[in-house]
Structure formats: C-alpha cells, structure tokens
Design a binder for these strands. Sequence first.
DNA 1: AGTGTCCTTCACACTTTCTTAACACCCGCA
DNA 2: TGCGGGTGTTAAGAAAGTGTGAAGGACACT
Lengths: 221, 221
Amino acid sequence: MSKALIIDDEQQMRRLLRMVLEARGYEVSEAADGQLGLQEAAFHRPDVVLLDLGLPGLNGIEVLKRLREWTDVPVLILSVRDQETVKVEALELGADDYVTKPFSTAELLARLDVIQRRRFTRQSPEITAGLLTLDLLHHEATLVDAPVKLTPTEFALLKVLAEHAGRIVTQNQIIRQVWAGQSSDASEGLRVHINHLRKKLGETGPRIVNEPGIGYRLEAE
Amino acid sequence: MSKALIIDDEQQMRRLLRMVLEARGYEVSEAADGQLGLQEAAFHRPDVVLLDLGLPGLNGIEVLKRLREWTDVPVLILSVRDQETVKVEALELGADDYVTKPFSTAELLARLDVIQRRRFTRQSPEITAGLLTLDLLHHEATLVDAPVKLTPTEFALLKVLAEHAGRIVTQNQIIRQVWAGQSSDASEGLRVHINHLRKKLGETGPRIVNEPGIGYRLEAE
DNA sequence: AGTGTCCTTCACACTTTCTTAACACCCGCA
DNA sequence: TGCGGGTGTTAAGAAAGTGTGAAGGACACT
C-alpha cells in the first residue's frame, strides 16, 4: 500500500484529501505546517507528498527545497490560481506536478497516478535545460510538457547546445557535430537554423544567445 | 528462483550488486568482461542481465548485440552519466531499461521488477491502443470489436508502433524489430507497409502519423 | 500447372526540410 | 559619417524524404 503525506494548513482541506486518498487505498498522514511536514516525511517515508504552497511560517517552496536535499519522493503541489511564478519555481525545484485549487478529486487522483507511475516506468535518455527536455530515444522535444516539433537538423543542433547548456559552444564545434562527415559549407545555414530554433522555442523556452565571433550559448535558468 | 547475471569490470560494483540481488532472492553469477559475460549467459541462462556499458575490450554495445542474436533475455543497462548517445544505441538494440550510476538500490530493484513483470505478463499478451487491440498470442487484431486482417509483417509493424503508442518510433527501431536479422534494405518496404496499414485501419482506427526524417507515431486518443 | 497471398521493388507525384543567396541591421573603428 | 565584419531575417530553389499504385517474384496450397 502506498503512503501519502498531506502538508496543508487548512484542516478542511486535509480532511477532504484524506477521505479521497483513503478511498483510493492510500495510507495517509498529515501535517499542518512545513516544519511538521518535514518531520513527518523523515519519519513515515511517504511514497508521495501533497504540498500546499500557501503555508504559514515555513512556506511551500522552502519545504520542497529542504525535502529535495535528501529525498526525491514525488511531490504534487497544491496551489491557488495566479501563483504562476511560484508554481514554476516549484517545478524547477523538482516538484513533479501541480493542481490548482479548487480541483476535482478525479483530476487529483489522475495526476497522482501519473507521477507515481512515472517514477519507475522505463526511462529514456534525455537532456534537460530549464523547462526544455530532449528525449534522445524518441527524438522528441518538450517545453513545459508541451511538445515542440523539430526537424532532424534542428533537433541535432539543439542537442549540442543543450548538452553544454550555460556554456559557449563554438561554431566549429556545432558544425562538426551537426553536419558530421558532410563537406558542404554549413556555416551559412547555421544562422538560419538558429533562427528557426529561436522561433520555435518562443518566449517560454531558454534563450539562445550569440557570442559574437565565437559561437552560441543556451541560457540555463 | 530467478537467476541474474552481472557483467561489469569493477569488482566493487559486482560485489555491491551481488549483495543487493541476493538479498532480494536472486541467484547471482558474475563476469568481469564482455567475453566472459557472453559465455556465462550461454551457460547459466540467466533470467535477467545487468550489463555495464563501460567495459574494457568487447564493449557493452557489442555484448548486447551478440546477446540479442540468440536470446531476448531482459537486459538492464548500467551506465554513467553523459553517455547519452550510447544509451540510445543500447535501447534501440533492444535493451529493456537502464539505470545511471550512481543509483539507489531501491531504484535498481524497482526497475528489475518492472522488466521481469513485463516479461511475465507477456504470457497473456494483449496490447491496446485506443480502439485497437492486438492479440499477440493469436496474431489477431481487432478494431472496435471487428477483426482486422493483417499480414505477418503488418502485424509486427503495428505491434512495434502500438507498444510505443503516442510516441515517436524511429525508422531504425522499426526496421530492427520488424526485419530483425535480415540484411535487405527494408527502408523501402517500410513505406509500403505503413501505407497498407493505414488503409486497413481506415478512418476508425488510430492514425499513423509520419515525423519526417525521424519515424512514425501511432496516435493515442 | 494454376491460384492466391504476401513481400519486395520500382516509378512518379507530392510534401517537408535543407541550402543558398540576398539584404537589413548592429556595432566598433577610422 | 562611412566602412566592414559578423549576425538576424526572409524568400526561393534544390535536395531529401514520403505516399501511392502497380508489377514481378517467392512461396504454399490445391
């Protein structure tokens, strides 16, 4: 039986969650603030944590940070609307998903299932850079869980940049890896493909910045 | 009792794995390099193989390739980070999953369970993707309860696509799994068979969409 | 032999992607 | 202010990849 830990300061919310989870077969423990939550987590070793972001005292982000120092237990964030910035922060800190209050119990359970299953389902080799993920096996790119359609060359190019995320990659390095074995002068086309990539990544994705005379760098957040 | 074979050149790693596996009830055998590993595999007939990619001499990929020539025993790859390309190659060659060193023993065991269970459940085999069902035992396909008549190659092809429903499957992956061991250039015929499949699935069935330059994807509803 | 099934191969139209070229732009420098 | 290198942007032709129909060959069964 899976163990779930609820960290939320509203008693009513805790009671609701407990009912739903127990009906689903979870063994439930609760904590009313962050400090207690961390103690509970260390003691009970839950298989999944439901964490409210709007905690008094030690806030949700802080709890998540401390939690991630010693465990990678799946964490589902509970947040109210218009906390986009905080949600993003939480996801980057290693939260697995979030639901927005008020939520339907069906949605909650569905998301729980997903993050539980994802934990030990077959993994693919992938490269992550901020909100961007490249699945090398399936040749798929996702940006904040939304698929991005890339052509083969674009994928290869972005792969090189993402492998060295945050660092400069010289034009020669890029050309050697993307156009390996080809004789044609690709240095022209490089600019065009960079351009396409920037468009497809849009505002959301990591920026591709140019270092004049040297090469390009994928900004890591 | 299940038999496990460890192929790794580091004695310390072998000792650790042996302890963990024996505690779990596996009967463990070891090999310190690829050559010995293949001999052991042929002799002991393990139920699962743990294969290190960074072997001296005969490397991991080569071992996997030779192994796959005569057995489809589940193989779990042990790799260090930043071997992304090699991992992709291994998975495409038919490795079942991988863990990245250093790994937690909990994760290792969980993944072992998964691939063992997957193997076991193959005995009541059925794959579903939306309204489509593939009966692997009788080689029969049904679409909304109506039988669909497929030729052997078409069935094998659809099986590969359905196993990864919703995700891209590389042309190489398809060819390796459908035309395993055959030398002929199947990349031509692939297009034709895809065409046949699309016709037989008709409007009702799941779409097979092409990702130009990469492969195909069976759309999951 | 005749028939039917299935796989392969080829030809050709069509779509997507890549390359090439042209031009605008920014910026440092004379 | 004008010049030149490097870069961003756009468009169009070239190349690569894909869809589709049909023909031929291998094989099993009658």
